[in-house]
């Protein structure tokens, strides 16, 4: 349903995306992960037809997202990272307008969303705060029966209860055979809700794979305690890569079998050896290095 081929958009001050290719089929949810300014929002803007690409193509239902935007949008639900809502409008009046303006409104979904996300509908938007407006934006998107849903940083700013509720709605929507694209800075949010993950760094696609496969790319981490600091330093000099030494202790990350590590350690006096798989957040950080904010 969503397809990008070599999609590029450059800005004068830097940023944007370069040569991005990805696709999302019906019943799939793609989580686009990346740090701030990685190009996630640019991708969303291109898919929503807010701007035209400098190169490549962005298509939904096989139609160009910029040129045929108005034809696509009836079946696209969208929530911005920070929805802009008229300050004097009440939540209720804004949602009623959105329902009439966009179409495809499902009152049953709207009722459940307002209950689960605890959305204040009577207050004016100006008094709702950033999170309140964000929840209104999410509700406007999710209360429709659109076939494609694009959510820009939907979890950011929500509390854990609201995150859980939103995750349920996203999974439910996916179960209805709808295609979803969700951007996030947090891997765990994507793991909870998506079937696919794409990691973007500095506008380029670093990784794209099923969420389950992400666990396989995780490295194993070993905490080794040597007899003294000299031994730890000697080991670090011998091991060379992916090793961090603090006093008599060393931290080693290895992608595969620990066989070589065990052979190497045989030459040293080891007091303790604790191993385990790095957690998903560490795995994500490894892809992004110092870019993560």
């Amino acid at each position: 349903m969503i397809r990008c081929e070599g999609l590029s958009k450059f800005y004068e001050g830097g940023g944007g995306i370069a040569g991005l290719s990805l696709q999302v089929k019906a019943g799939e949810a793609l989580g686009v992960l990346g740090p701030t300014d990685a190009g996630k929002s640019t991708l969303v803007r291109l898919l929503m037809g807010f701007c035209r690409p400098d190169a490549g193509s962005a298509q939904i239902f096989g139609k160009d997202c910029f040129g045929k935007r108005h034809e696509i949008q009836r079946e696209v639900a969208y929530a911005a990272a920070s929805p802009a809502i008229e300050s004097r409008a009440t939540g209720d009046s804004w949602l009623r307008f959105q329902a009439r303006y966009h179409g495809g409104y499902n009152p049953e979904k709207a009722r459940r969303l307002s209950e689960r996300l605890d959305i204040g509908l009577t207050g004016r938007a100006i008094s709702l705060g950033e999170t309140g407006r964000k929840k209104l934006g999410l509700m406007a998107a999710l209360m429709t029966d659109a076939q494609v849903t694009i959510l820009d940083e939907p979890f950011y700013g929500l509390d854990s209860m609201e995150k859980n509720a939103l995750s349920d709605f996203i999974r439910e929507r996916r179960g209805e055979g709808k295609a979803m694209l969700i951007t996030s800075r947090v891997l765990e949010e994507v793991q909870r809700t998506c079937t696919q993950v794409a990691i973007i760094r500095q506008g380029r696609l670093v990784l794209s794979q099923p969420v389950e496969a992400l666990a396989l790319t995780r490295q194993k981490v070993y905490h080794i305690t040597f007899k003294d600091a000299a031994q730890a330093a000697a080991f670090a000099a011998e091991w060379e890569t992916a090793v961090e030494v603090i006093g008599s202790r060393a931290l080693v990350a290895i992608p595969a079998s620990p066989q070589v590590l065990i052979q190497t350690l045989a030459k040293y006096t080891v007091f303790d050896l604790v191993g385990g798989r790095e957690d998903s957040e560490e795995s994500f950080l490894r892809f992004h290095g110092d870019d993560v904010v």
């Binding site: 803007r45 929503m48 037809g49 807010f50 935007r69 108005h70 034809e71 696509i72 949008q73 009836r74 696209v76 969208y78 911005a80 920070s82 929805p83 802009a84 809502i85 008229e86 303006y101 966009h102 179409g103």
Partner: peptide
């Protein structure tokens, strides 16, 4: 401020 972008997220 992005309100027009919100308007464009509709079949018009």
């Amino acid at each position: 401020d992005g309100r027009i972008a919100q308007r464009l997220a509709a079949p018009h």
